[in-house]
């Protein structure tokens, strides 16, 4: 598993680092920067949804929390960006702790709706508070350096991916989470503490999301409750993860790239039909649940391992046959 990840991960990382030198078009760079951001959001979503089995429909709230924290600290308290950004992550983590305390007691569907309702409440709060600028949103000083944001986004998402890869695929933590997903009573009987582990997963999912929200705020220079706290962030993260493959780290990356590419093309060529995008998004979720419940990556992997096991069967049969003849 480990050498495979280095064999694939390192060349991709090198290509991505070299990319701005080759691509001079700022629009294209912007699109790639946002694609990387969505990969990060989908990965963070998958920690809770795919590995722990808890669907967080309020994922967008952490994104907004990070964005607003960074924006408020920069604008009202005049903090430098380098200090305000980590605070966005910290506050998202604290938010996860506070929100997780009651909601993580709920199971399955109830957890999903509770987090969803919570994110609606947070959006309402941002709409009525003075410090957030209400429905008008907030403006940040513009810092026009596409390369800076590209590398910042890349660094955050790469570190997130490496961290998640280490924690979820190469250490017992991932297995513990999966145990809770499959059977939390059984996990408890084996001496695991589901409440603590769920809380850790929740925070692990919230912190990168909050940091990405902070970068987004400074990058786009304008945030309002609809764009950062609205349904769309959670909805898109969900469809990316479900379409790509839940419970894997490669699946969300594939899903994020495909869905984001589709979204960009759709909004570029069919901007008059923005509402149609909502229908397509919903249809993609529903259809991929019915036809590819394991997502693209899960289905592909399933096919490959199926083939391998069949080949093995053939080999073992072939190995047996001559022996029988010998007797």
């Amino acid at each position: 598993m480990k050498d495979k990840s280095i064999r694939w991960g390192l060349p991709i990382l090198l290509i991505l680092i070299a990319l701005p030198a080759v691509v001079q078009d700022t629009f294209f760079l912007r699109v790639i920067t946002e694609a990387i951001m969505w990969i990060g959001l989908a990965l963070a979503f998958d920690v809770l949804a795919g590995y722990t089995g808890y669907l967080n429909f309020g994922h967008g709230a952490f994104f907004g929390l990070g964005a607003y924290t960074t924006a408020i600290l920069m604008m009202q308290a005049h903090w430098p960006f380098a200090l305000a950004l980590p605070m966005g992550g910290v506050l998202a983590g604290v938010g996860a702790l506070v929100a997780g305390l009651p909601t993580l007691r709920l199971k399955g569907a109830y957890f999903a709706i509770a987090t969803w309702a919570l994110s609606r409440a947070v959006q309402q709060l941002a709409l009525i508070m003075d410090i957030t600028g209400g429905p008008d949103g907030m403006r940040l000083p513009s810092f026009l350096n596409p390369q800076f944001f590209y590398y910042l986004m890349l660094a955050i998402v790469a570190v997130t991916f490496a961290l998640l890869w280490f924690l979820l695929e190469c250490s017992p933590f991932g297995l513990k989470l999966k145990a809770i997903r499959e059977d939390d009573q059984g996990a408890m009987a084996l001496g695991l503490n589901p409440t603590k582990l769920k809380m850790q997963a929740f925070i692990l999912s919230a912190v990168p999301t909050g940091i990405l929200g902070g970068v987004y705020a400074y990058w786009i220079t304008f945030i309002d409750p609809a764009s950062t706290l609205g349904d769309l962030v959670s909805d898109q993260a969900l469809v990316m993860v479900v379409f790509g493959g839940m419970g894997t780290l490669v699946g969300p990356v594939i899903g994020a790239l495909l869905i984001f590419a589709f979204k960009t093309l759709f909004w570029a060529y069919l901007s008059d039909f923005q509402l149609l995008y909502l229908i397509i998004l919903g249809a993609v979720i529903a259809l991929s649940v019915v036809f590819i419940p394991n997502g693209l990556w899960g289905t592909l992997r399933g096919l490959r391992s199926h083939k391998k096991s069949e080949e093995k069967k053939d080999e073992s049969l072939a190995a047996k046959l001559p022996q029988n003849e010998g007797e």
Binding site: L55, F57, G108, A109, A112, D231, D235, L238, V239, V242, L275, L276, Y277, L278, I279, I280, L281, G282, A283, V284, I285, A286, L287, V289, V290
Partner: peptide, 13 residues
């Protein structure tokens, strides 16, 4: 759950 959520988004659209 994800399925009904997808339905909800689609219906809204």
């Amino acid at each position: 759950l994800v399925f009904t959520f997808g339905l909800a988004i689609m219906f809204q659209g």
